[in-house]
Amino acid sequence: MNNQEEYIDQYLNGTMSEEEKQSFLRRLEEDAAFRQEFVRQEKLADMVRLAALQEQLESIHLEMESGDGHTGLTDSGAADNRLTDNPPDALPSGMRSAIKKISAGWWLAAAAVILLVVLGDYLLTRYSRPPEEKIFAAWYAPAPGLPTTMGAGQNDIRLMDAMVDYKTKEYSSAAGKFKALLPDTVAVFYLASSYMGAGQYDSAYLFFRRLAGTHPTGWPDHYTGMAQWYEALSCLRLKKVTEARSILQAISGITDHPYREKALKLSKELPAL
């Protein structure tokens, strides 16, 4: 234990009397070494506090987005406008006149053939897939990677290198690099996510489960929370529906869980299986 650390903590946590606080501030002003130590310790406390607060904000945002699915958070209008930006007469004039010469009947027949081919293909892929896969496909979105701009220690550089591969969907290469960084929590999560991206659901399931099982109550951990959600999805993809259901139930039972709303909704789709 360290008396100075405790002394600084008392100030940081606001547990000093007014008198103690004044004496603390005086020392801060007069003693440069103490001041330096204070700044360093305050920075660490801030990191813990702000990271915890941001976990909460992320979880509130996810909850809000998944609340009713129509919270106005997505702006499809702008994208729609962009799609119609091309003017209808953008084709070269020679091609336009050639098109006019072809009869309307021919176009109709050709369109019917194309429609049949496309629709047939769509129906085949859609209805030949087992229901678990369909639900999985509807709910699975790859976990977003971390920003890759940080420079720091050796591990960070390796982590960022792996992250670049992950974000560019080079999943096999990313998995190899994340594996080398185990047992780092971030590496475990993104190793599992890389396996998921690569379609290796068995391996993804094992690593998500490893991370998800460590979730302690009271700590709103970003990675273990996400891992539980993806563990449930990988179970679903592997047709372990009962297990998927029990994970989703566990998530739904945690008020602060960032995936609580999604878990509740997905659970409702499962009984039909």
Partner: peptide
């Protein structure tokens, strides 16, 4: 914050 979260995750 991302950096803090990564360090804490370790």
């Amino acid at each position: 914050i991302d950096q803090a979260r990564q360090l804490l995750a370790r």
